[in-house]
Simulated assay, not measured.
Amino acid sequence: MSHSLATYVALPGTTAEAMEHWHEVFGGELNILRYGDTPMEGLPFEPDPQAVAHSTLVLPAGVIAGGDAMDDGKDYPLQGTAYSLLYTVDTPDEARTYIDKLVDGGGSIGMPFEQAPWGDWYGQIFDRFGVMWAFSCETD
């Protein structure tokens, strides 16, 4: 058995929409499993059959996994700078392509993508779901 590490995001009922959007932006292989597609006996909660139980977007650089958060009355804000999905690419143009797709899809620039003081390229974008994407690449 080999080890792997994936990012897991629990979104408030928007996981399918987010994963489909990220699939449009980045490509890869998308799989979405809804609760209605699983045997729901024995679950400690009553999920909406259309809610996402588990999803994965497999990219050449890694895996994003996620599911719909089961609302327990707590408020978990998504947009913030305590975390981000860091995507390291080969060229600034490749990063700009992804950034443009995220912004065109309803996102906003958090930090412009430009050459950073350490010499590499870096920038931050909040997608329309409030998830922060950081893009990085070495100087070309």
Results as ranks from 00 to 15, higher is better:
2 S>G: 12
2 S>F: 03
3 H>Q: 13
4 S>N: 06
4 S>M: 13
7 T>K: 01
8 Y>F: 03
9 V>E: 02
13 G>C: 01
13 G>H: 04
14 T>A: 08
15 T>N: 07
15 T>C: 12
16 A>Y: 00
18 A>Y: 00
19 M>Y: 01
19 M>H: 01
24 E>H: 05
24 E>W: 01
25 V>L: 03
26 F>I: 00
27 G>F: 00
33 L>A: 14
34 R>N: 01
34 R>V: 02
34 R>L: 04
34 R>T: 04
35 Y>K: 09
35 Y>I: 13
38 T>V: 12
40 M>D: 09
40 M>Q: 13
42 G>N: 12
43 L>P: 01
43 L>Q: 14
46 E>R: 14
48 D>H: 12
52 V>Q: 03
53 A>K: 13
53 A>E: 12
54 H>K: 07
56 T>Q: 11
57 L>P: 01
60 P>T: 04
60 P>M: 08
60 P>L: 06
61 A>R: 04
62 G>I: 00
63 V>S: 02
65 A>Y: 00
65 A>D: 05
67 G>N: 10
70 M>D: 15
71 D>I: 04
71 D>T: 07
72 D>L: 15
72 D>C: 15
74 K>F: 14
76 Y>E: 12
77 P>F: 10
79 Q>H: 11
79 Q>A: 15
80 G>N: 08
84 S>R: 10
88 T>G: 06
89 V>A: 14
91 T>W: 02
93 D>G: 15
94 E>D: 12
94 E>V: 15
94 E>P: 05
96 R>G: 05
98 Y>C: 15
99 I>Y: 02
106 G>P: 02
111 M>C: 09
112 P>M: 09
115 Q>R: 14
115 Q>D: 06
115 Q>F: 03
115 Q>W: 04
115 Q>V: 12
117 P>T: 09
118 W>L: 11
119 G>W: 05
120 D>I: 01
128 R>Q: 07
129 F>G: 01
130 G>S: 05
132 M>D: 00
133 W>K: 08
136 S>P: 03
138 E>Y: 03
